[in-house]
């Protein structure tokens, strides 16, 4: 089991009104699973991602990540979990603009205290896996959208995390580039990574082998269709 959440609720205060973003959600994700979390805006999708990504802690309920209860951890403990076990891929790439691709990719290793020599090897390795070796010394502003997202994926990979959490990874890309990025994620899954895809696009979600749909802070459906991608393509077209 890669991760498991049990009866997780998250309540925000919006002014004086309490917003129940997640209501007693339970979900478990196996190692090397490829799962998509879908839902319209306001469904609790973002909150789910924040909780799964250890950026936020649930108001109630438990969250076990590789058997470790992370739901009660403090800021610094969560930071360490994010550093060691989670790789983020964001819609807006979130690269540091004044740093080169190499330095962006290297950053998680800096925060984990990896020695410099080792860092260079690991960062270059991750950059090579996404095919950006010839762009390693470029700054993000000198790259295309697809290249930026590849750099972000390299950064997500570099610390060899338990899960890769991709939040609308193709949202800012054209469809051709989007397919390239999805191909890379598919490849990572084949190579053994656990991938959680948060998206509202059916076409993107169908790359996953399991689709969880949220609505109003609750799980609406959790399906594991056989070769979901192929069949859906036929249906949609």
């Amino acid at each position: 089991m890669a991760l498991e959440i049990q009866n997780v609720s998250k309540t925000y205060m919006m002014g004086t009104e309490a917003v129940h973003a997640l209501q007693s959600v339970s979900l478990s994700i196996e190692e090397n699973e490829y799962i998509a979390i879908m839902g319209p805006s306001g469904s609790g999708k973002s909150t789910m991602m924040n909780v799964l990504g250890c950026l936020d802690t649930p108001t109630s309920g438990e969250y076990y990540l590789e058997g470790e209860d992370v739901s009660k951890m403090n800021d610094d403990q969560l930071a360490e979990i994010r550093n060691q076990k989670i790789g983020f891929v964001f819609q807006t790439f979130n690269l540091i603009p004044r740093a080169t691709v190499f330095h962006n990719v290297e950053l998680p290793l800096v925060y984990s205290g990896t020695p410099p020599a080792e860092r260079i090897l690991m960062a270059n390795d991750a950059i090579e896996r996404v095919g950006l070796t010839d762009r390693a010394t470029h700054k993000p502003t000198e790259l295309s959208g697809g290249q930026r997202q590849r750099a972000a994926i390299a950064r997500a990979l570099v610390n060899k995390p338990t899960i890769i959490l991709a939040d609308e990874p193709t949202g800012n890309l054209d469809s051709v580039t989007g397919r390239e990025i999805m191909a890379i994620l598919d490849g990572l899954h084949k190579a053994g990574n656990t991938i959680i895809l948060v998206t509202h696009e059916q076409e993107i979600a169908e790359h996953a082998h399991r689709i969880v749909k949220l609505r109003d802070g609750q799980v609406e459906s959790d399906v594991r269709p056989n070769r979901v991608g192929r069949n859906a393509d036929v249906v949609l077209n």
Binding site: L55, D76, P108
Partner: peptide, 16 residues
Amino acid sequence: TREIGIRKSLGAKRRS
């Protein structure tokens, strides 16, 4: 602010 958010998401602790 965004840079700080990115750094935190990558595992930067408060002290860092």
